[in-house]
Simulated assay, not measured.
Amino acid sequence: MSLGDEPGYGDASRGEDGGYGGSGQTRTRLPDRPGDVYGGARRGRSSSRSLVTVVGVVVLLIAAIAFANRGGDDPSSGNGDSDKAKTSPTAASGSRPVESKTAGIPSGFGHSEQGAQSAATNYGVALGSTGMFSTEQRHAIVNAVYAPDVAAARQPDLDKAYSSEKFLTNIGLNKDGSAPAGQTFISRIIPVGTKVAASTADSATVELWYTSLFGLSGDGSTNPVSESWYTTTYQMKWINGDWKVTDFTQKDGPVPVGRDQTASTADDMTKAVEEYGGFTYAR
């Protein structure tokens, strides 16, 4: 077991030997010219009032047609929408979300496919967080997320990997895992969707598709915050009244086409991460 097997670790910087920490690979593309972080030419923007007017008319027309075709408010007339909601992998289940936590991580998930998806997603968020770089928090996360026997087996290897001076140096952190003065360490997973690939009464295979942010925000950062996309497949088992992870695999993507947007400044990125908290996923 190595750190490269942990979800979220694949977002780290390239090591000195040219390899990557995780099974997913993240490439940092250097700017081709000043002011363009991602390189390449930028598209011009049109400010034509006539174009704005035409777009506005089209939007209003579409809205009017949609309103005219809407059914009544009678629930019986919305069977089609109801069926779509039931088959949607991220539709609300109608069950109350969990109200308990273990080591700050939601726990006590429902004994159902929806409960397994919620558990896998929340566990993925925890495993990809900055808490994994603190010994105390890492132990709490691993014990809360994994099945007891799996947690005991993984813990020693995780401790060794996350305390590796070479690894910490490669991603720009100090030897104790802290960020350099004036910089903020960011490691966050943002779930996009889940699906159950297989399930039985007490087990489930859950696929979590997510985007992640990883790096150091601040002046002088050698590992600026970048975005990556992965899908992690979790093997879940119902143990002692809750879902626990027994194993997982990770792969790149699906990766969307990036838009032509200007990267934010280090100050803006730091402020956003400090002001916007992460999500607790439930359905």
Rank of each mutant, 00 (worst) to 15 (best):
residue 43 R to Q: 11
residue 43 R to Y: 10
residue 45 R to V: 14
residue 48 S to M: 03
residue 48 S to N: 11
residue 50 S to D: 10
residue 52 V to C: 08
residue 58 V to L: 15
residue 61 L to Y: 00
residue 61 L to G: 15
residue 63 A to I: 07
residue 63 A to F: 02
residue 64 A to H: 02
residue 65 I to S: 08
residue 68 A to H: 11
residue 69 N to A: 13
residue 69 N to E: 10
residue 77 S to M: 11
residue 78 G to K: 13
residue 78 G to M: 11
residue 80 G to V: 11
residue 82 S to G: 12
residue 83 D to N: 09
residue 88 S to N: 14
residue 88 S to C: 10
residue 89 P to T: 07
residue 91 A to Q: 08
residue 91 A to V: 03
residue 93 S to R: 01
residue 94 G to K: 03
residue 95 S to M: 10
residue 96 R to T: 13
residue 96 R to C: 05
residue 96 R to A: 14
residue 98 V to H: 07
residue 101 K to Q: 14
residue 102 T to A: 13
residue 102 T to V: 15
residue 103 A to H: 05
residue 103 A to Y: 01
residue 105 I to T: 06
residue 108 G to Y: 03
residue 108 G to I: 04
residue 114 Q to C: 03
residue 118 S to W: 06
residue 118 S to F: 03
residue 121 T to C: 04
residue 122 N to W: 06
residue 125 V to P: 04
residue 127 L to N: 09
residue 128 G to M: 02
residue 128 G to V: 02
residue 130 T to P: 05
residue 132 M to V: 02
residue 132 M to P: 00
residue 133 F to D: 06
residue 134 S to E: 12
residue 134 S to L: 08
residue 135 T to S: 14
residue 143 N to I: 05
residue 145 V to R: 09
residue 146 Y to F: 15
residue 146 Y to H: 09
residue 147 A to S: 15
residue 148 P to F: 08
residue 148 P to N: 10
residue 149 D to C: 01
residue 151 A to C: 07
residue 160 K to V: 08
residue 162 Y to W: 09
residue 165 E to Y: 04
residue 165 E to W: 00
residue 166 K to W: 00
residue 166 K to C: 00
residue 168 L to D: 06
